[in-house]
Amino acid sequence: MSQQHGPVTAAVMTGTMPDMPDHDGPLQHHFDDMAQQNESSALGMWLFLLTELMFFGGVMTAYAVYRYLFNAAFAEGASHLDVRLGTTNTIILIFSSLTMALAVRAAQMDKRKLLVGLLIATMLFGGAFLVIKGIEYAHKWEAGHVPGAYFHYEGPLANHVHLFFSFYFTMTGIHALHMVLGIGWMAWLVLRSARGDFGVGYYAPIEMTGLYWHFVDIVWIFLFPLLYLFGAGAAAGH
């Protein structure tokens, strides 16, 4: 639900709503100049990311509390995650962040074909991430680790391992939804870039999407050690 607002916000704030084409060029009527408009969209996007930070912060807080309370059970639960797939996904996301950053650069330098290519590359990396995530989810489903009615786990810590998997699916699920919407939004930007909408004078939508995408990357940078590596460390250390 909330996840839909990321790209939509970017759309609304940068004045690129698909149903409201800009007739008078990119400068909207209530701004004095493009500088004011760009500064406003950048600040707006940052405030939105602040909101997103606190949104993820809510579930991170809950995770922190339970990990403090049920350390052993959470380590046991984490040991069932696949570190190799998690690491692969981390690397894929870093690649996508690089292509996104370079896409913004391409827009700044007016290299339109490069921009389109880099956006598509970012989408492909994002898609690969989601595919691997899907494989992981499928594994969890087969192993009976999906929380809820079909959860199946033997052992004295089963209750709290269930809690761990509740967090695993909630946190990675919200993160994946953010990615899906980011990719969908980028598809629209690819079309607009191919049309030649962006260049030296006007690339705010690309820049805002970049901020959003990097933020999603940062969330994963924290989810990865918190969820995957905890079990590995505990298994090796104890």
Partner: peptide, 15 residues
Amino acid sequence: SHDAHAADSPHIVPL
């Protein structure tokens, strides 16, 4: 008055 990423002079970070 104007940020670094103002439209007239984008700050392009080297590759």
